[in-house]
C-alpha cells in the first residue's frame, strides 16, 4: 500500500485545489442526471432483455427462467406473426410514399421565396401536431356515411367505401394518414440537403446541355444519397413504433377491425397491460429492439463504408496509396 500523504507524492500528480473543486462539481452535477437516466431508461432497457427470458406472473416478471421459450412461442403465435407482417407492410409503404412525396416537394420548393416559406410551414403543420387529435379527425374523414373522403370521391362517381370497416382498406387508410403526418418532416430534411448543393454544379451541367430531369437524376439525387439513407432509416424506425393512430382508429364502433391493422407495439401493449403476460411481451419488445438496431447499424454501416471508400479514393488520387 502506498502511503497517503498530504504532500505531493512521487508518481502521482496531485490535483490542484481548482482542479479538485472542478472535479467535485462535475461529479455532483452529473450524478443526478445519470441517476435519472439509469432509472427511467438504462436499467429498464437491460431489464427488458432479462424479462424476455422469464415466465412471468402478475406482479412477478421473473417467476421462472425459461430460456428462449418466449421467443419460440412468439414465432408460433399467429397474432404476433400477423402484427410483425402488418407493421413491416405499414413501415415499407409509409416510408416509400412519404419519401417519394417529400423528394418531389423539396424539388419543387428548393428555390427560396416567400411562397416556398409559406408552403414549408403548411406542409410542416401535421408534423408538430400531436397524433391523437389528427387521428380523431381522420377517423371522422374516413367515416363511411358522413365522411369527407367518400364525399369527395362521390364527385368522380366512386361509391362510398367503408374505409376503416374492411381489413384491406383499413391498412391503406392508416398508411395514407401516416404519410400525411410525416411527409413534411422528410421534406424539410431533403430541402436542407438540396439547398446545400452548390448552384455552380447545376449551372455547369446546364451549360453542358443537361435537361432538368438529367440534372435531377444525375446530379441532385446522387448528392442527396447520405440524406436519403438517413430519412429512409428514420422513417422506417418511426413507422415500426406505430401505435397511437392504430389505437385511435381501431377503437369504437367506427373503428377498424382490430387484427387487420394490429401492429407490434399494439400487440406488446395488449399482452403486457391487458393479459399481463410480461415476459412474453418483453420478448416482443426485444424483437422490436433488434429490428431498430439492425436498421440503425445498416445506416451507420453504409454511410461508414461510403466515407471509408471516399477517403481511399481521395488518397489514391493524391498518390498516397
Amino acid at each position: 500500500m502506498k502511503r497517503i500523504s498530504t504532500e505531493s507524492s512521487p508518481g502521482r500528480k496531485k490535483l490542484s485545489e481548482t482542479e479538485f473543486k472542478k472535479r467535485v462539481f462535475a461529479y455532483t452535477a452529473i450524478l443526478p442526471v445519470i441517476l435519472i437516466f439509469g432509472f427511467v431508461r438504462i436499467v429498464p432497457i437491460f431489464q427488458n432483455f432479462l424479462y424476455s427470458f422469464f415466465q412471468s406472473t402478475i406482479g412477478n416478471p421473473l417467476q421462472q427462467f425459461i430460456g428462449f421459450t418466449n421467443f419460440k412461442d412468439l414465432f408460433a403465435d399467429d397474432l404476433f406473426v400477423l402484427s410483425l407482417r402488418n407493421t413491416t407492410y405499414f413501415a415499407v409503404f409509409v416510408t416509400l410514399f412519404s419519401v417519394a412525396f417529400a423528394v418531389l416537394l423539396a424539388a419543387l420548393l428548393s428555390t427560396r421565396s416567400k411562397a416556398s416559406a409559406l408552403y414549408e410551414t403548411i406542409y410542416f403543420l401535421p408534423v408538430i401536431t400531436p397524433m391523437v387529435p389528427v387521428a380523431v379527425v381522420w377517423k371522422w374523414i374516413y367515416d363511411p356515411t358522413y365522411g369527407l373522403l367518400n364525399y369527395v370521391l362521390s364527385w368522380v362517381g366512386i361509391e362510398p367505401i367503408g374505409w376503416l370497416v374492411f381489413p384491406n382498406t383499413a391498412m391503406v387508410a392508416i398508411i395514407i394518414m401516416s404519410v400525411w403526418k410525416i411527409v413534411g418532416y422528410n421534406m424539410i430534411i431533403f430541402l436542407v440537403g438540396m439547398r446545400d448543393i452548390p448552384e455552380s454544379y447545376i449551372e455547369a451541367a446546364r451549360i453542358d446541355g443537361a435537361s432538368t430531369m438529367q440534372v435531377f437524376w444525375r446530379i441532385i439525387m446522387p448528392l442527396l444519397r447520405p440524406i436519403m439513407l438517413f430519412v429512409l432509416v428514420i422513417s422506417t424506425i418511426n413507422s415500426y413504433n406505430v401505435f397511437t393512430q392504430v389505437f385511435i382508429m381501431t377503437s369504437g364502433p367506427q373503428g377498424a377491425p382490430g387484427n387487420a391493422v394490429r401492429t407490434i407495439v399494439f400487440d406488446i401493449y395488449e399482452n403486457a397491460f391487458r393479459y399481463f403476460r410480461t415476459g412474453y411481451a418483453a420478448a416482443e419488445a426485444v424483437v422490436l429492439f433488434l429490428i431498430i438496431l439492425a436498421l440503425t447499424l445498416l445506416q451507420f454501416g453504409i454511410s461508414g463504408n461510403k466515407e471509408r471508400r471516399d477517403k481511399r479514393r481521395l488518397l489514391r488520387k493524391g498518390g498516397l496509396v
Binding site: I42, P44, Q47, P61, A272, A285, V286, F289, I292, T296
Partner: peptide, 15 residues
C-alpha cells in the same frame, strides 16, 4: 439510449 424508443422498455419501466 436515444435510439431506443420508450415502447421497447416500457414494461420494466412500468414495473
Amino acid at each position: 439510449t436515444a435510439m431506443v424508443p420508450l415502447e421497447v422498455y416500457m414494461i420494466p419501466l412500468y414495473m
